[in-house]
Write a protein that binds this DNA or RNA. Structure first.
Lengths: 356, 356
DNA sequence: TTGAAAGCGCTAACAC
DNA sequence: GTGTTAGCGCTTTCAA
């Protein structure tokens, strides 16, 4: 190992970070002048400003945002929190990116965390973010109610809800037209002649899952179709569960002629089950949320597509607006989802093996 | 709008956050006693401790981590930085999740940001994280060299590199055996009889892209095959570029009999081009990085699979180890990638239309 | 076992 | 234009 590498790795040669005081001493000015220069406050002569910048550069000075935040009147940390279901889920990863897009432009950092549908974790992380004094919070709620957030909001941590609205609390939100979009998609299946439609829904208690279920019922009732309790499977938590349930339905005496899967993981599990049963070309399917390769599978998968990155951007915009105008009324932005027609949603029903 | 909702949304009723001082007053003890109780320091009588906790609870007290970090001897912020190529890329999203897995257990927050292959952004964000006094940094470097980081490390911000090693600097790292794994995959194609193999590589200057290219050359040279400059296309930046280049090669007089694509986005573009050209069952393909549905496409896509979540976990472990022992020697952990055999990698070559 | 005083690095308020 | 002083909310140090 070269001396260079030792230097880079270890901290035996650790050099304490210079403070503003050090920069002031090096530049031969007062502390306050350094503060003015580095914060671009007006009223510093160019020559002093240049000396200060030179000294700061030579010392590799990094302003201490922790100290500055503590002292500043508004106590802003230039950091926001983001709580979502799972950072690694492509839907939420894109939402996260949308939030970052907006924050990056204004130099705001994003502290993100996954809740994994764990209500305790939601509460713990909200408290943790409050302790960090984030300037605001964007969250995809997972607990069954969010009334507990009222006091955090009153204490100066504005919250914007993304993808799902909170319960027990009015608040700003950005989400899609879950119920209407589901209704349209299921109506499309019905238009294609389906009357034996299975519905796979996500975790109970989560608003989007409820809304999509209602949209399914809307379409079924509007068409005068009966909803089979055997084919309505809700509270599904994973790809594997969806796949197992779909496989079970496909092995039964009477098989649905179409599936509506209300979330991306459920679509993935169901499409796997259809494929393994060799029935993917005979049974129709529409899923909520687009995913990579939905158009390349055989058959290509019709989906109700959202724009998660846009949801994130709008949520961040809304949060900054709220921070600037704390007393404006709550706003809920509903983004339209679009039914993306591919092959799987246009498959016609085949007669049931047995008549139920 | 109900009064409750007004309360929740706006901040006209804003209540300033209580401080430790307020808790002390409410509990009738001194500031220091509150500090001791809330930090679980020993030597406080149970009755006082109980009174303090009660008061803190009633006031909805949230310890101010900003203030505590500033005052504490080690100035730790319980926050680390994570710089990666793109938060929304499934590979990096999983790596991020691995980092979170480890940090969550010890109450450390993760500030993540995307670099988008922008060297200036890398430098800007490193400086920004230094200003925030993150306790450490995990990064996937994108700039052509990282010697500039030596001073940040010396100033007390340890850095662990993930997925790629830095240049011009020795440091801790966690990555996969890019070169060897690529060599094995290309050798597999050669074993299957291929001698007209195209290589699609990622952005030049990025270490993984270089390593995988070398692995390709290793396999080709070992087999005595000639490397066609027309079929080696490097510095590809996007799905679209890869798709366009693959389409171009497929339309030429002489067509490769197999593709090796060195990154997930390139695999996606190439597999789309193969499909649109109707040649996906006649031309072999192996890609670096697994992706959702690789096994469900027709043909299923053989890949060199990494475990990005594990990379993230190990990188975070290594960072915490480094923080605890600043003077230990640098460690580079190399995780093996596994060649996942599916259909596309086992397609046999068909004769070239013309002999070159 | 408890508390008083000092001060982390910076910005606000007010001199000069 | 520039500098001085005070103090953000907490932990450290030291005294009782």
């Amino acid at each position: 190992m070269t001396p260079l590498s030792r230097t880079a790795v270890g901290s035996s040669l650790a050099r304490p970070r210079p403070t503003m005081r050090d920069v002031a001493a090096a530049a031969g000015v007062s502390l306050k002048t350094v503060s003015r220069v580095l914060n671009d406050e007006p009223g510093v002569s160019p020559s002093l400003a240049a000396r200060v910048r030179l000294a700061a550069g030579q010392l590799d000075y990094r302003p201490n945002l922790t100290a500055s935040s503590l002292r500043r009147a508004d106590q802003r940390t230039s950091t926001i929190g983001l709580l979502l279901e799972d950072i690694a889920n492509p839907f939420f990863a894109l939402l996260h990116r949308g939030v970052e897009d907006v924050c990056e432009e204004v130099g705001v950092g994003v502290l993100a965390a996954s809740l994994d549908q764990d209500a305790d974790r939601e509460r713990r992380l909200v408290a943790a973010f409050a302790s960090r004094r984030v300037d605001g919070l964007i969250m995809v709620p997972t607990d069954s109610e969010q009334a507990y957030l009222a006091k955090e909001i009153r204490s100066g941590m504005p919250i914007v809800f993304a993808d799902r609205l909170p319960r027990g609390l009015a608040g700003d939100g950005v989400l899609t037209d879950n119920r209407e979009a589901t209704q349209r998609a299921v109506a499309h299946l019905i238009d294609r002649g389906h009357d034996r439609i299975a519905f796979f829904g996500g975790v109970l208690g989560i608003a989007t899952a409820e809304e999509r279920y209602l949209g399914f019922l809307d379409a079924m009732y509007a068409a005068g179709l009966q909803v089979s309790s055997e084919w309505v499977i809700r509270d599904l938590h994973s790809v594997e569960q969806a796949q197992a349930q779909a496989a079970r339905l496909l092995a039964a005496e009477e098989v649905p002629s179409a599936f509506f899967t209300a979330q991306n993981y459920l679509s993935i599990g169901t499409s796997r089950a259809l494929r393994f049963a060799g029935m993917e070309h005979r049974i129709a399917m529409i899923g909520y949320d687009d995913f990579e390769f939905a158009d390349m599978l055989s058959p290509s998968i019709s989906v109700v597509a959202q724009d998660p990155r846009r949801i994130g951007q709008l949520a961040a915009d809304l949060l900054f607006t709220r921070m600037a105008e704390p007393d404006r009324p709550a706003t809920v932005t509903v983004l339209p989802s679009v039914l993306t027609h591919r092959k799987s949603g246009d498959i016609r029903p085949t007669p049931a093996r047995e008549h139920g």
